[in-house]
Amino acid sequence: MAMAALRREGRRFAPLLSPRPIAAVRSSLVSEEDIPFGARSISTQVVRNRMKSVKNIQKITKAMKMVAASKLRAIQIRAENSRGLWQPFTALLGDTPSVDVKKNVIVTVSSDKGLCGGINSTSVKISKALYKLNSGPDKETKYVVLGEKAKAQLVRDSKKNIELTISELQKNPLNYTQVSVLADDILKNVEFDALRIIFNKFHSVVSFLPTMSTVLSPEIVEREAEAGGKLGELDSYEIEGGETKAEILQNLAEFQFSCVLFNAVLENACSEQGARMSAMDSSSRNAGDMLDRLTLTYNRTRQASITTELIEIISGASALEG
């Protein structure tokens, strides 16, 4: 009883006695040496509040991790299945990342939402490097940006070169119809010799490879085919029906673009969820560490004030007896 009463007294007097009560409370978080003269017990309110907020943040990050994990599972299957769409094209037309053409269009794929680690900055960085690589006299390079995050980063220094921005792609679950309508819009709005799609290819939950897929325009395909190389084998294919080679190539290029874009968007969404999962995992771990440290400080302060009070009571009692 006496101890509780004393503690209450002490708390009531503490602000009166200490010259800088708030500073004293703050310092309890940082160091315990700066306690002003005469302050008997320090309020632990601030530490308790901080602990509560850290605990709440941890709950949120844990929930986000769970959401990302379940979304990842659904989208991973779709992304892996969609790989079958572009592989035949690569087998037929080959992937020619080093092709040198006049009009380049860089399609940067990113996410609309943040909190997913560095995947958006990676694709922006690769896009900028590619821009530098492909720029030169009488050459023209433009950006087509998918997703809010890459847009925000590219607006800062290369907004003159942005041709199209697309967002809100993931309002509904991604599907081929949606991406093909989008691909159609891109094809109609930009002039290109080569489209270069930059996205994060999903490897595992923790590793994403920034990847570039190149889609050539039909004229360039023809030019490259005449020059020989992998594309030179195109002539060995027999074309059925009355279409000319140019028509076939144009259809193929359009269809290839929509398929490659579909795969890119899915892979990137998959990487986004994976990156978000690992980011949220590490942030809830950090919150846990922080909580441990705060609990330690809190308990130590509490223990110290109890010990002080005990000593005071005992010494007071012994003074009366003696």
Binding site: K159, K160, I162, E163, L164, T165, I166, S167, E168, L169, K171, N172, P173, N175, Y176, T177, Q178, V181, L182, D185, N189
Partner: peptide
């Protein structure tokens, strides 16, 4: 229902975005 289309697209002129067009069938 699987094949729902929704996105917003904006063309840029001289470094400025024009009003985004929403392509949606819902």
């Amino acid at each position: 229902t699987r094949e729902k289309v929704h996105f917003s697209i904006a063309t840029w002129k001289e470094g400025k975005p024009e009003k985004p067009v929403i392509r949606s069938d819902t």
